[in-house]
């Protein structure tokens, strides 16, 4: 059992070291949502009124509305960044070292996803700490309750990233992931606007957002931050995480033969 633990810790440690070496990644991970919060949300707060809707008990400022969406955005970008580093590992050969480990692929994949989720969580917590500076009202209990929600969403998106990594044959193709996965996933969700508001403008867009699993990650985090459980979001995230993890495991094993 000690050997498994040693391997698990080493995989996590390696991801943390790599993240620490690449501090600009942390900076850009924070600048992106902060720009949305401090520029986009401030500009739109007078245009967009968000009426009372769960989990909120009163009218809220737009700035407050988009915080959970921006938390999910950090997780989304970090997970996709991880898929990029997986492609890098494959190109540089270090993926072979991992695959030559005697431990099962499922365990190695779990360790990698766990490491990615820890990194996502760290970044989100730093972002939430910065949110306090702009008077976004989130309780400490909410943050504690949101931790598993962020973790689960990170697992789902991490697994999705690993599936995508299988389709990225070269590092240069990452722009395609930005355009065809990250942006549509983020914009066509409840991260920036509530679904009822989207439905008022476009029925078809509403249905896309409705079926976008990222929406449920955002809602799971949103409800948890306000100390509530969105059980349908939990169910969707759990089932998509399971489905994506199985698919990720199959593609991860396929990395051997890539």
């Amino acid at each position: 059992m000690t050997g498994w633990f040693t391997a698990f810790v080493a995989i996590n440690q390696r991801e943390l070291i790599r993240f620490w070496h690449n501090r600009s990644r942390l900076l850009s991970a924070l600048v992106r949502p902060l720009l949305w919060l401090l520029v986009f949300a401030v500009g739109f707060r007078s245009v967009l009124g968000v009426s009372i809707m769960p989990p909120y008990e009163t009218y809220i400022l737009y700035q407050e509305y988009i915080v959970p969406g921006l938390c999910a955005m950090i997780v989304l970008f970090n997970s996709m960044q991880n898929s990029l580093s997986m492609v890098y590992d494959r190109e540089m050969g270090s993926m072979k070292v991992l695959l030559m480990s005697p431990y099962p692929s499922s365990f190695l994949l779990f360790a990698k996803l766990f490491a990615s989720a820890v990194l996502s969580l760290l970044q989100v917590l730093i972002f939430i700490a910065l949110c306090f500076l702009v008077d976004v009202d989130i309780s400490l209990t909410g943050i504690v309750l949101a931790t598993p929600a962020i973790f689960m969403t990170a697992f789902f998106l991490g697994a999705l990233g690993i599936i995508l990594a299988n389709f990225i044959k070269q590092l240069e193709n990452f722009a395609g992931i930005m355009n065809f996965v990250i942006f549509p996933m983020f914009f066509m969700s409840s991260a920036l606007y509530p679904l009822w508001k989207i439905r008022e403008s476009s029925e078809w867009l509403y249905w896309i957002c409705y079926y976008n699993p990222f929406t449920y990650g955002v809602e799971l985090i949103r409800f948890a931050l306000y100390q509530q459980l969105n059980s349908s979001a939990l169910l969707v995230i759990l089932s998509t995480t399971l489905a994506c993890s199985i698919a990720a495991l199959m593609t991860f094993r396929g990395h051997k033969h890539a």
Partner: peptide, 9 residues
Amino acid sequence: YFGALHGIT
């Protein structure tokens, strides 16, 4: 890192 992937401290 390699050692740990083989369960070695």
